[in-house]
């Protein structure tokens, strides 16, 4: 279900922990699985974590599927619902809001024609609101697909970013 490359990455994570504590690698393993699905998936449904993928990861780590499932649902960066090719998460917490975070979210929402929490009809973009990303000095900030942080996202910078995300 996962590529040899993803499994090798998971093995590297497992090696960080004592031999009897493979469970510690579950967060990283789910992240690696999600990243592969995001990169390979052609539809919103194919880009998120499913019970089958979670069970596969759990079996690989020799832990109970429910233990992995609990983790996948507790931490909010794991996509458990269908998601666009580009998931954009804007920080709108207070420090960012004081420097354009709320305006950036509004601008994106208007520009993409979707409300926060929605995915565009062509399955390309999902827009989400996020909590403090530890980058408030660079506000407005947004995350693309969980791993790429974009700083100082004025309307012009957002236009440019969207043009890059083809």
């Amino acid at each position: 279900m996962l590529s040899a490359e993803s499994l090798a990455s998971i093995d590297r994570e497992v090696a960080k922990y004592p031999a009897d504590q493979k469970r510690s690698a579950v967060m990283a393993a789910l992240r690696i699985a999600l990243t592969e699905r995001r990169e390979q998936g052609q539809t919103p449904e194919a880009r998120c974590l499913t019970p089958e993928v979670i069970e596969y990861v759990a079996n690989y780590l020799e832990i109970a599927p429910v233990a992995a499932y609990e983790v996948a649902t507790f931490y909010n960066m794991y996509d458990m619902k269908p998601v666009g090719k580009y998931k954009i998460t804007v920080c709108t917490n207070l420090p960012c809001a004081l420097s354009g975070g709320v305006s950036a979210a509004k601008y994106l929402s208007e520009k993409l024609g979707i409300a926060i929490g929605e995915t565009t009809a062509d399955g390309k973009y999902t827009l989400l609101e996020g909590e403090c990303m530890g980058a408030c000095g660079d506000a407005p900030v947004l995350l693309v697909n969980n791993h790429k942080m974009c700083s100082h996202m004025s309307p012009a910078a957002i236009d440019q970013k969207l043009a890059e995300l083809e």
């Binding site: 960080k16 967060m27 992240r31 931490y75 960066m77 794991y78 403090c132």
Partner: peptide
């Protein structure tokens, strides 16, 4: 020394 990575929980 190893690094671990969270995934969204204050």
């Amino acid at each position: 020394l190893y690094a671990a990575h969270g995934y969204g929980a204050y």
